[in-house]
């Protein structure tokens, strides 16, 4: 599903050069639920951005769903994000002026899906996260947990094969976070590959695979059966 080989990412300014990722290699198989942990500034978000085609690597090879994405232009990358990747952000990133229905509609519009099909998909996605009855509400009228559920509905509505979650529970209380995690595990159980960046060691320990990053390198890559062993 995802293959990174010797990925480097360097941020350059006039005075300083920062290596966010160094010879970063990773293989994530289809259907896996991988958590990524590490201290602040270790390169988690950079990895997520490159994996989600939000940024390009400075060097190295990245195959997503078998396709080498290194040579794709901006337009092709946008289309690939829209068709294959779902995003869940720490602060939800909902459009405050749009109601829930219109928020979930955003990725479908960029895909050019017809209105009737969009309506059907949006209602199914909102129903899946238990918020269909509030589809005309604005994000500000919902709790944090509910907003994250809307963001999950938005990520799922395009039926992506690959879901990237950036600290999805970081702004939620523990009970709400638990609900969101259950939802993500349920989505994963239906075949969607998930990579989740988190600070929360407890959540990380519950995933089938956990990767630890330090100074732009993978320092640990454990699978659940290894931990159990």
């Amino acid at each position: 599903m995802l293959k990174m080989h010797n990925i480097n990412k360097v941020f350059r300014t006039e005075v300083v050069e920062t290596h966010a990722l160094r010879d970063f290699s990773l293989h994530v198989a289809e259907g896996e639920f991988v958590t990524v942990t590490g201290p602040s500034g270790c390169g988690k978000t950079t990895f997520l951005n490159i994996a989600g085609l939000l940024e390009t690597a400075s060097s190295g090879q990245y195959l997503l769903d078998g396709e080498d994405v290194s040579a794709l232009n901006d337009f092709q990358r946008a289309k690939m994000r829209n068709q294959k990747i779902g995003f869940i952000f720490q602060s939800f990133n909902l459009m405050p002026d749009l109601n829930l229905f219109d928020n979930v509609d955003v990725p479908l519009r960029y895909r050019g899906v017809k209105a009737a099909e969009r309506k059907d998909r949006i209602e199914r996605a909102l129903d899946a996260v238990g918020l269909l009855s509030r589809k005309k509400h604005l994000p500000a009228q919902l709790s944090g947990g509910q907003q994250q559920r809307v963001a999950i509905a938005r990520a799922l509505v395009g039926e992506p094969r690959f879901l990237l979650a950036d600290e999805p529970t970081g702004n939620l209380d523990s009970n709400t976070a638990e609900g969101v995690m259950e939802l993500l595990h349920s989505i994963n159980s239906q075949g969607t590959t998930i990579i989740m960046v988190t600070h929360d060691a407890v959540l990380a320990s519950r995933s089938a695979r956990n990767i630890q990053i330090l100074d732009g390198r993978i320092i640990d890559d454990r699978r659940a059966h290894q931990k159990a062993a």
Binding site: R81, Q83, P107, G158
Partner: peptide
């Protein structure tokens, strides 16, 4: 919001 739209698949022309 614009960055989010781009992440969700909006092209520059969009």
């Amino acid at each position: 919001q614009i960055g989010t739209r781009r992440a969700l698949g909006a092209t520059r022309p969009d």
